[in-house]
Nucleic acid binder design. Structure first.
Lengths: 248, 248
DNA sequence: GAGTGGTCTAGACCACGAC
DNA sequence: TCGTGGTCTAGACCACTCG
């Protein structure tokens, strides 16, 4: 049996995690089987129960095991064949990809009516809608178009440079004094329409990733809605699942 | 100051998390600011440091705060304007959506050569390739096509019913005796080709979500590659970000 | 050197599931 | 009733950052 090296720079909880992970990956522990109890693991590897639990929660986060109170800890089924796609801010993402992010404000305007899809999401125009449209660039090449609609309440003027980096939820707070507390995003594939195709410099009907985001106030009323169209040939999401490293 | 109710069924670490979350959402704690130290929080709310840390790790998971050893704990910027899309197995996903999942095996065959995109990913045909193609259905309607390529090594016969539910990584292990340990998935938008369009019952060139998955052995060599095309009009991914509930 | 987060221990009580 | 995971405490040592 592999032992814990207490003099290593790799902490014990992490060492134990890699040991258990190996047993799962090599089939010594098979899907559906139960692990030894936390107390047993503690005795076996001479660790406190707290440390064992920290290790197990690490494996649970990665989807390798799951726990059931009163019953035990069990090896999960899939582990691979899973994918997790994270979308942060465009700016951050481009920097990570080694590209120079850029923005071009296409239009800002006050609207009296909402587009149909926003109404379907339960949004109401109330005093009006503040709309803006931006083009997102990578190394000066267009990658995505962004359309945003938010409730217009305060008479505060709009400053162009606000749209450069600020997050949508931040802009909404400034302009409406309403705090968004919940957001929902839907990701799918569509054919790009005429207007957006021109901005993106692609043929009408080209495939795009569509991200529709809705921000909700604490009373569950939508106060801002955004739509992004990402060029299918220039933008994709990546998910990586890899084993724990023996050392950190 | 809000206090911790030690008689509540909601555990203290969770109560503290909702208190701190509220302070962040309402702007009492602004982005970039530092939280009180863990010891201070413990004194303030009469909790042990362990409990305070459990609460902070919950908020960190949700992206609300981040910690820096030796410096402190800080409020993060975005919180909303973030999205997390999880893709599990088709079967599970359909059941969650209240649909009846179904599968139709279109083709299984032995190939001597790999398609170009698989070669570009670094895969080699070696003794040959086992290829299969499935149609994924929801309530008998086609939703996606799946193409899989894996190394062929053992002379083991292929059983049709193996492809019904088993995960790709499992099938690979059975047929090659090689354990995949890492997977990478790329998600994007494309126009569907003639072959897949017919299977999906859509017009050629219709927008589809393309998921390309590669499974790697421990020596970092790709041993299996899969491609999914999901109908853009019938499949999308959803991400929800909501505040902690005061009660559980 | 003082303060911060990161890790670990030993022991306690609770809620749940199974017998 | 017993074994399981879930939570909490009080105290310890370490690694890192900063003045």
């Amino acid at each position: 049996m592999e032992k814990i090296n207490k003099n290593s720079f790799t902490p014990p909880f992490y060492q134990l995690a890699t040991i258990l992970e190996k047993k799962i990956l090599t089939g010594q522990l098979k899907a559906g089987e139960s692990l030894p109890s936390e107390n047993d693991l503690g005795r076996e590897y001479e660790l406190s129960r707290t440390t064992v639990r920290k290790c197990l929660s690490l494996l649970a986060e990665r989807g390798l095991i799951s726990t059931q109170q009163g019953k035990g800890t069990f090896v999960s089924r899939p582990s691979l064949d899973r994918a997790e796609f994270l979308m942060g801010e465009f700016h951050t993402h481009m920097v990570q990809m080694g590209k120079e992010p850029g923005y071009r404000l296409v239009e800002v305007r006050f609207r009296k009516e909402l587009p149909e899809f926003a109404v379907e999401l339960g949004m109401t125009a109330e005093q009006g809608i503040l709309y803006y449209c931006r083009l997102l660039l990578a190394d000066t090449e267009p990658v995505a178009v962004e359309h945003k609609y938010m409730l217009y309440i305060k008479g505060r003027p709009i400053l162009e440079n606000e749209f450069q980096y600020k997050a949508f939820s931040e802009i909404i707070t400034i302009h409406t004094d309403i705090l968004p507390v919940r957001s929902q995003a839907v990701l799918g594939a569509e054919s790009v329409g005429e207007f957006d195709a021109k901005l993106l410099n692609v043929a009408q009907g080209s495939p795009v990733l569509k991200l529709q985001q809705a921000l909700y106030a604490s009373d569950n009323r939508p106060i801002g809605i955004g739509v992004f169209y990402y060029r299918g040939d220039r933008y994709s999401l990546v998910s990586d699942i890899h084993p724990l490293k023996g050392e950190r």
